[in-house]
Write a protein that binds this DNA or RNA. Sequence first.
DNA 1: CACCGTATCTTGTCAATGACAAGATAAGCT
DNA 2: AGCTTATCTTGTCATTGACAAGATACGGTG
Lengths: 194, 194
Amino acid sequence: MSDTRGYHHGDLRRTLLTAAVQAIEESGPAALSLRDLARRAGVSHAAPAHHFGDRAGLFTAIAVQGFDTLADALTRAGDELLDLGVAYVKFAVGHRAHFEVMFHPDLYRTDDAELRAARERSGAVLRAGLAHRSGRPTPAADGPQEDVLAAWSIVHGFATLWLAGALPAGLGEDPGDAARSVIRHLFIPAPGTD
Amino acid sequence: MSDTRGYHHGDLRRTLLTAAVQAIEESGPAALSLRDLARRAGVSHAAPAHHFGDRAGLFTAIAVQGFDTLADALTRAGDELLDLGVAYVKFAVGHRAHFEVMFHPDLYRTDDAELRAARERSGAVLRAGLAHRSGRPTPAADGPQEDVLAAWSIVHGFATLWLAGALPAGLGEDPGDAARSVIRHLFIPAPGTD
DNA sequence: CACCGTATCTTGTCAATGACAAGATAAGCT
DNA sequence: AGCTTATCTTGTCATTGACAAGATACGGTG
């Protein structure tokens, strides 16, 4: 059924999505061309438009897929706070195309219904996991979950810097291990601060 | 001298750079068009090519300017560790066009000599400032300055999330204040961990 | 089985873009 | 005054995103 025979491709949408992700991993979102995408899939230059409408529509679909995958990955990461952070970084590096698109709202349609749902889903998993923080029932009294934002910031920052190639060598090959040893510096202390 | 008269513009390069930064702030780097840029500056469509070669050349120039400005800002931020982080976030939000370009190496030429110099300069300021950390003479024995990377990660992550509009409302209008109250969660504890 | 509506994909076209080539104009130097 | 060089313009080409209109296959209904 998922063959490439004749007029009807059978599974074009999925094929285009995976081809797009691969292309983005190779040369970034900016360099992605709808026509090149069509060529890779062996279809005409206007075929993608039918499934995604336009460029923004394609990126929207990728972002949705990304938020869904992230939610799954975080769910599988377990309850341990540090593991959650490591899973976040692993997802970013392992799915860099999705990750880059997800956090570049100028590429897609942020008001898309499916997208909002997927984003909220992964956000909920993240918040739930971080709120589960063992020694601290209610995160903080003052700000809007400042410690959650701090945790999100450090893992997101590490992932972004890693992907940008801005981190120094000597961290090793495995982003998970590297992330663990770095973000540990936020998670280890569990003080009753104020 | 810096007028727009006749055949020779007089200060085209600078004019194009500021126009480009403004355009990027409005609609992101991806949407930047060299021809639109030329129109904004009131010159022919091929004029930018003379100064920057091509699109990548323009982004390279912007990145250089960005790393230089960042180095200056961090230098002015003083010795206090928290202030340094806040200055980093303030720069990112106050110069979002530069910041976005700087950390998207696929946009420009990473092997450009001027760029490498500017990047190294700002990197040195950052490392020096973070190494100055009062209570801790030598950061850590084990990893490659893991605590420095943790600090960089959290401020970079916060800035990126802020710019992406991913942070929840309720943090207020001022990114500096918000950053201070969030990244504080990393900087406050000064334990003798291991 | 015949028919028809619809989803899927193609061909054709247009304005805009990035890149390049070649020429025109100005500025500086001797 | 004359030469050299930097700066900017005009002209052109292949590529791209978007749209319109048509061709093909699929699924259901009679």
